[in-house]
């Protein structure tokens, strides 16, 4: 099925709206005091989980194209930006509602607590990606440099999954399942990259003419 240009544009906007629905649902739960016994923790957890989910979805676009010949490239920016928004709200809830802006404790946490350091690093990496997720930046940077910059998404997603594993006690299944998905997606790229390199290497150099 091919979409017309208008339909394509509309479907991208629809994705932005759909991606925002979990946030609206959470706002509704918050206002109605329906987030359970520990609402701050629940809100943090759900927001962080949606950020990770959208990062994973954005990383699925390329394998889906290569494996199934389905091109969802036009949706990737919306997925990535949605991940950024959820990560930002997740961070703000932690700063304002959880740590209640106690700056000393916050700074100490970021420095001393590896899971928070890692979470902050993941978020920091998302900032340049979000800022350059527009046509102007692609033109300004050039396609190759832009693509190289956006490889940071791999690092950010891996760190986000690690952050999730480290915040819990013991080894509950949920963070491990998400980590396995992220590992699979990153492995897929590593294998692809290795294959490309192997294909590129043996090409013999033409002998210079005498």
């Amino acid at each position: 099925m091919r979409l017309t240009a208008t339909q394509a544009k509309f479907s991208v906007w629809l994705l932005y709206v759909v991606a925002f629905l979990p946030a609206i649902w959470m706002a509704w739960l918050t206002v109605n005091d329906a987030l359970g016994a520990d609402p701050v923790r629940e809100l943090e957890h759900r927001l962080g989980l949606w950020a990770l989910r959208f990062l994973i979805l954005a990383l699925c676009v390329t394998p889906i194209r290569q494996l199934f010949r389905i091109n969802l490239l036009r949706y990737r920016r919306a997925l990535g930006l949605s991940a950024f928004w959820y990560a930002l709200i997740h961070l703000l809830v932690w700063l304002f509602l959880d740590r209640q802006l106690e700056m000393q404790a916050i700074v100490a946490d970021i420095i001393k607590r590896p899971y928070i350091t890692i979470g902050m690093a993941a978020f920091a990496l998302l900032i340049p990606l979000a800022l350059t997720s527009n046509r102007f930046s692609i033109r300004k940077l050039g396609g190759a440099a832009w693509a190289r910059l956006h490889k940071l998404a791999y690092v950010a997603t891996a760190l986000a999954a690690l952050h999730f594993v480290m915040v819990v006690k013991s080894w509950p299944p949920e963070p491990l399942i998400y980590s396995a998905i992220v590992a699979t997606l990153l492995l897929f790229r590593a294998v692809q990259a290795a294959r490309l390199r192997r294909r590129a290497e043996p090409a013999p150099l033409p002998r210079p003419a005498r």
């Binding site: 016994a37 520990d38 701050v40 404790a105 100490a108 607590r113 590896p114 899971y115």
Partner: peptide
């Protein structure tokens, strides 16, 4: 992995 200095009362 985390501070025990404060707590949230459910």
């Amino acid at each position: 992995r985390w501070s025990q200095a404060t707590e949230r009362r459910i």
